[in-house]
Design a protein around this nucleic acid. Structure first.
Lengths: 213, 213
DNA sequence: TAGATTGTTAATCGATTAACAATC
DNA sequence: TAGATTGTTAATCGATTAACAATC
């Protein structure tokens, strides 16, 4: 679970976290050849109330037509634009263990417009191998390559003990955001955007609910 | 990011999602040989206010000593108990692609007391291989093996197109909870506990914030 | 036109923060 | 005792739900 995506600029963090769901569903609906969709149907497909969806969208503008619904292509374009997906951010994964390799191969990122441009690891057996068409580089070259390849987002998939060090290097190299899978709270400058993905939370909370059934 | 862990039984879902963080930090503090910790220090280590922590804990009982703090061992035991970790749930991963293999190898689950007891895949090249000391079985045997090995939680790491089918089988086989990594909203009976882990949300929301810096 | 559906305001609900009495 | 720190109540803030006018 991604932790603490706090709101900013007046828009609720909860709203922002729902936008990717809208985007994905709109893509599916588009593939089905549909031109128009109502907040009602979108809601039914996602398990979200239509009022919630209308409110979320309305906080960014008027994208629908009263009495009609939303034009699928147009809305998808707008939501993608709001999410900044057309920036086509360059991303790099640091730590090509099982999880890092899984992330490097994750096809849904391509669908969102992200470009995987670098992979890093410090294990000599892993350096030089190719994962999803990208060669794994030595972690010591993070600073150099992040600048060269204009990497915007660093994904941290190293063991907890190394995560802070990697974060420091990524920050110094000038990435704008970090997506962190290591189970630690990292120290980064105020201006750095960081999203923590904590896999323990989902499973533990499931345990909580199971215990109380 | 884990989606929609709604509160239940009067306890806020946000509170429950913080408990695993407390648990993990207490384990670390315990390893450091510390006997006592204050809400203030716990807060500093996690980036959470001490008031929030005290409130979270207080909703389950009085675990601290005024003027002193919390006894680390005792609190860790209590938080683990609240989360139901001492149930030592049996878990199975369905879909041993990159992500499924990463989850099967995820060491943090062991630290939380979960037992990995089965792996499933439908690819004949994958069936029979061993991942993290567990043999991969044919997905067609889900129902049989879930019962045999008394699996409580099913983890879905198959492509979106197969996820609903897998969920149906897991439900029929009698699992109590599902941890779903496929990017779809699944239809399951009301009584089934399901936590959706949606990796697109974290990265997309990061894109949103980066766009507005 | 009548029916459908959005966008927006008001009401409710829930979660966090602040304050402080209790007490170790 | 004096200082520290919890547990709890009250105040604030934020997010969701309900209602409905606008309008296609």
């Amino acid at each position: 679970m991604a932790v603490k995506t706090k709101g900013q600029g007046g828009i609720s963090g909860a709203t922002i976290d729902r936008l990717p769901l809208y985007f994905r569903t709109l893509r599916l609906v588009q593939d089905e050849g549909r031109d128009i969709i109502s907040s009602d149907e979108l809601g039914r497909r996602l398990g979200i109330t239509p009022e919630q969806i209308r409110k979320d969208l309305a906080s960014f503008g008027q994208f629908g037509k009263k009495g009609v619904g939303y034009y699928v292509n147009e809305l998808k374009h707008n939501v993608g634009n709001i999410l900044g997906l057309d920036n086509h951010w360059n991303i790099a994964v640091v730590g090509i263990g099982h999880l890092g390799a899984a992330l490097a191969n994750y096809q849904n990122f391509v669908a969102l417009g992200f470009n995987l441009v670098a992979l890093f690891d410090q294990d000599p057996h892993v350096i030089g191998t190719v994962v999803n068409h990208v060669k794994v580089e030595d972690s010591r070259r993070i600073r150099e390559i992040v600048r060269q390849r204009k990497i915007h987002i660093g994904i941290i998939a190293v063991p907890a003990a190394f995560a802070q060090g990697v974060a420091d290097e990524l920050v110094e190299a000038g990435v704008q955001g970090i997506w962190n899978f290591a189970p630690i709270k990292m120290q980064v400058p105020e201006t750095m955007h960081i999203v923590n993905e904590d896999l323990s939370i989902g499973l533990s909370s499931l345990s909580y609910y199971l215990t109380r059934t």
